[in-house]
Design a protein around this nucleic acid. Sequence first.
DNA 1: CGCGAACTGGGACGATCGTCCCAGTATGGG
DNA 2: CCCATACTGGGACGATCGTCCCAGTTCGCG
Lengths: 214, 214
Amino acid sequence: MVERVETMVRIPVEQRRRQLVAAAFTVIATRGLAATSARAVVAEAGMSLASFHYAFTSREELLEMLITEVTDGEQAAVLPQELAGKTLEELLIEGLTGYLEHLRADPLREQAMLELTQYAIRSQPELAQHQYRRYREIAAAALQLAASETGTRWQVPLGTVARLLVHVTDGLTLTWLVDRDDRAARDALAAAARALTALAAPEPPTAPEPSPQE
Amino acid sequence: MVERVETMVRIPVEQRRRQLVAAAFTVIATRGLAATSARAVVAEAGMSLASFHYAFTSREELLEMLITEVTDGEQAAVLPQELAGKTLEELLIEGLTGYLEHLRADPLREQAMLELTQYAIRSQPELAQHQYRRYREIAAAALQLAASETGTRWQVPLGTVARLLVHVTDGLTLTWLVDRDDRAARDALAAAARALTALAAPEPPTAPEPSPQE
DNA sequence: CGCGAACTGGGACGATCGTCCCAGTATGGG
DNA sequence: CCCATACTGGGACGATCGTCCCAGTTCGCG
């Protein structure tokens, strides 16, 4: 009664989980989290519905793995490449411009990240916290590099500047996704770089002499 | 066959629309946009499902009216109250602190606004643009007031600073909703105020004399 | 070579969704 | 006072959702 099925493929669970996660991210980016049903995901991955619940016990579990994997794989798209002979402000502008280009190149990706954050805030707060800790780590690394490379020093705790930088990139993302105004985004980004620069000051000489204040 | 219904109430359409919009916002805030079904809304509003489609032709129409109404009613929660004798940085700190308090007092409201923005980006881009134009208007008004009140002048076009300020508040909102870290938020906000202050300079005397540069 | 276990396809279940319909009720203009 | 109409309650429809089940297929290990 059952026909010979020629397309049946046997794939180990781990690989299938990865495939489903990737497919899910694609669906979220293109059609939104609300439309990311189990059926839509398996359709995107080209497998049957049963494989979904063989690999994951629930949709929630898939999303959990998705968020974890995506935020851990998050790279510093912000790091400027040419460091030599630039001022801090120039470095910040380049870094932020790099982020804007990253955003412009693949807006759906950042939109998906945003939707996942919002989902996580409601459904898996720890995941959202982890995601933002990672963002801040990346920001802090970039800021520290920029400062040390230009012989400057942050006047405010690095973690605080990093937090502020994440605010800026988040805002940049949200606003640009809304209006797609490249020119305005670049202006705002330049202003942000200029403003952030005010939080740094030239580093005192390498061998710190006791200041003659007492 | 039909029993006497004693609870039936006749309400004009306009009022019912307003009631439904208000109920919908409550549901979005408490349970998320994904859970904001027509049935959930009418349950919150205490009416029957038919009234929903008597007042609105579709769920989408309700959300459209909801977004429009809410963003038009958006107030400047950011305006500092005591203006006299403060520096620009102090004024900015107070304004941002005011916003943080507003956020802390009713986090679900801002979370709902964020979810509505995300929905609008995908489904009604014009509404999202309108929403963010409104945000920028409010920010620009606050910034202009702060500058004129402290005898300073923005070195960067007001619209650009306003855009940047919206970035900061958006980022503040998102991050705080994720980690609820009041202390870190206040630090970041103070840093933001300090950084933004660098974009302003003392206003030249009221009667502008020609500068002796030529 | 054979068999247990890993894996897959397809279909099914109950819940919930948006939308619609219709019989019935209250009300204001004549 | 009465009737057209503005309005409401409740139920229904088809679609889609997450989840589950089971018969059947393939593979690795003995």
